[in-house]
Nucleic acid binder design. Structure first.
Lengths: 202, 202
DNA sequence: CTTGCGCTTTACCGATCGGTCAACTATCAT
DNA sequence: ATGATAGTTGACCGATCGGTAAAGCGCAAG
């Protein structure tokens, strides 16, 4: 049998919301259990430690990111440029939805976790790094499509995608600090001006 | 009398290092006191709470940032473009120094604190927002100088400076996640390609 | 019906959390 | 010399931390 109860999933959901809206160090497993309606003993039946739970939450976040953000942006039938613009818009919509629901701009779940934990937990840092790399690859693919279609001038697509990704992370961090998701819309347009590597001039 | 002992300063130094290299939630006032060689009772003689200590640490960080980064980058005798490049280089040097000393890329102290605390402590969030605004203003001044000197094409300098600042924050966050400060050098060049707002075409 | 097992419950562990308190010492001006 | 004041000390508070142990539960396969 795979799962006879939904306890594990409820713990995952509870932890995801709490860790995202607050932080690792300021959310205890007791609180995660309370929100999930689960006893602490049950928690440790499903997860050997808070660290392992966090890794599972990051993977869960990645699935949700793909559903809510990436699959709605990187549509192959769209042009590369349209995909890049859609990415910015969907990130804005996501940040704006939490702002309207709880009054707070939460920023990027991976960026938040990395800022707090990368220096304190090497396992978590590596997981975050891997997830970020995957997202960067998706961005690179869209960028290459835009270049191929002539919407963006040829460039070093790997480096440019990485720079664009850094820009997006910075946008979300500043939006969180100002508690204003509109910043993403105001400054997001600059992403398309970013470029590294000139085409070989003939 | 102003200060009859250096206890307060030692607490500030201890807290600055611990909060920067770890995080707010995972550093206790007990540990801050131990590193400073101070009893906990003394701590609460100088600071009414951990929150107030954190605010003082942020201000301390800002002073150090001006000394180590800004004053070495925004030299009026330099051209605007040179100032912007110097900023990137000095940020790289700063991140690289901690990597060589303790093996870890720590990222931006304000970005780290904001990621962890902006949703949990409104006072800290506002302080961070204010400090970030000041830094953005310095960047804007250098950018305007570069535009005035014809090194960069005219643009919306306020928005462009904000976008450049977001890019820098994103760079430091990714460098931290990869634990590799070289990323700042590899991608930093893209900052100068960022622009928002066309000059009014005549 | 019974055995086994996935899951839950509850009590508990030592350690640490942020913060308080009253007693104490050192230094200063009067 | 004395009193006021700044600073220090170490014990202490209730609460919470991440994690453990053992007994008990319901259910499905034999």
């Amino acid at each position: 049998m795979k799962t006879s109860t939904d306890t594990r999933q409820r713990l995952l959901d509870s932890a995801r919301e709490l860790l995202y809206s607050r932080s690792y160090g300021n959310v205890g497993v007791k609180e995660i259990c309370d929100v999930a309606g689960v006893q602490k003993g049950s928690f440790y039946h499903f997860f050997p430690s808070k660290q392992e739970l966090t890794l599972a939450v990051l993977d869960e976040f990645f699935i949700i990111s793909k559903q809510e953000i990436f699959s709605r942006s990187f549509r192959p039938e769209w042009s590369g440029l349209k995909q890049l613009n859609a990415l910015l818009e969907n990130i804005y919509l996501f940040q704006n939805s939490t702002k309207e629901q709880i009054g707070k701009t939460l920023g990027c779940p991976y960026g938040n976790m990395s800022s707090e934990m990368s220096t304190q937990d090497e396992v978590i840092r590596q997981r975050l790094n891997g997830l970020l790399q995957q997202m960067e690859m998706s961005l690179k693919t869209a960028l290459e499509q835009a270049v191929h279609e002539g919407e963006i001038a040829p460039c070093d697509t790997a480096a440019t995608a990485a720079a664009m990704f850094a820009f997006i992370e910075g946008l979300m961090l500043l939006a969180k600090t100002r508690n204003d998701p509109e910043l993403i819309r105001e400054l997001g347009v600059a992403m398309l001006t970013i470029r590294i590597g000139e085409p070989a001039a003939t």
